[in-house]
């Protein structure tokens, strides 16, 4: 019975909150005096789909690459070779200390011009991966630092070899610690990839920008753009929550 009344309380409050947000949007729309016309979605559906798939592709490849970069940077930072430690430190601090939009312009001209990479998709993925890699390195570094030293000592005490300790104890515990944060970072990658529109990578945001420039349906276009991003990020948020619960043995 207690559970049931709690459930009702939750549902009522969720409805109220949603209603308030919708009302605010509705009033804003009324004040603008525009009427809705979402017909462009049908009209441009293949372009929108292409943009959507491009964003998914950018984010997926970007995530894999940035994971790779992040692992290396974190290992260098935690390692004993001072030279690599400093390289990693410069990289992480520079990337985390400057805005993505500046990096996109800078790297696009460096990578594009100096190294002759003319493919916008390839440049875009590289820039995105380098950017996100720094954040992933920090996530991994924090994960490594948070591992309890007693766990490694216990591994020694039960007789595990070094490689058994890494394989059976350190990596599973590390993954449990960082997985929720990594899922969150994946969500960031999806959103950050929208900035690649400034170097004319035709991903989702750029597609919508182009369409809205044709039909002047700014409000509907960007509202729909938001919905499409939410289609990607909300499931990820749910997955992140599930991971958090599943790995709660850490706390």
């Amino acid at each position: 019975m207690v559970l049931r009344s709690q459930l009702i309380k939750k549902v009522v409050n969720a409805l109220l909150a949603s209603l308030l947000v919708l009302a605010l949007v509705w009033i804003s729309v009324l004040r603008l005096g525009v009427s809705f016309d979402f017909s462009f979605i049908i009209q441009f559906k293949s372009r929108i789909l292409q943009g959507f798939l491009m964003t998914v592709a950018l984010s997926l490849i970007g995530f894999v690459l940035s994971l790779f970069i992040g692992i290396i940077a974190a290992l260098w930072q935690n390692g004993k070779i001072l030279f690599l430690k400093y390289i990693s430190s410069i990289y992480i601090n520079f990337i985390r200390g400057t805005p993505l939009i500046m990096q996109i312009y800078l790297f696009y001209y460096i990578i594009g011009t100096a190294w002759g990479v003319n493919n916008r998709f390839v440049s875009g993925v590289l820039i995105l991966s380098v950017f996100e890699g720094a954040y992933i390195a920090e996530i991994i570094r924090a994960g490594i630092q948070g591992l309890a030293p007693t766990q490694v000592e216990a591994a020694r005490a039960v007789g595990f070899t070094k490689s058994q300790t890494i394989k059976l104890v350190i990596i599973p515990q590390l993954i449990a610690r960082i997985l929720p944060a990594l899922v969150g970072q994946f969500s960031s990658i999806i959103k950050d990839s929208s900035l690649l529109s400034i170097i004319a990578v035709i991903e989702l945001t750029q597609t919508i920008r182009e369409i809205s420039a044709l039909n002047f349906r700014l409000f509907e276009s960007y509202l729909f753009l938001g919905v499409l991003y939410l289609c990607l990020t909300i499931p990820l948020a749910i997955v992140g929550k599930i991971f958090e619960k599943q790995f709660s043995f850490e706390t």
Partner: peptide
Amino acid sequence: TGFVFQQNGLFKH
């Protein structure tokens, strides 16, 4: 031999 720690000696995962 075997070893028992003061605490947190069990593998948490």
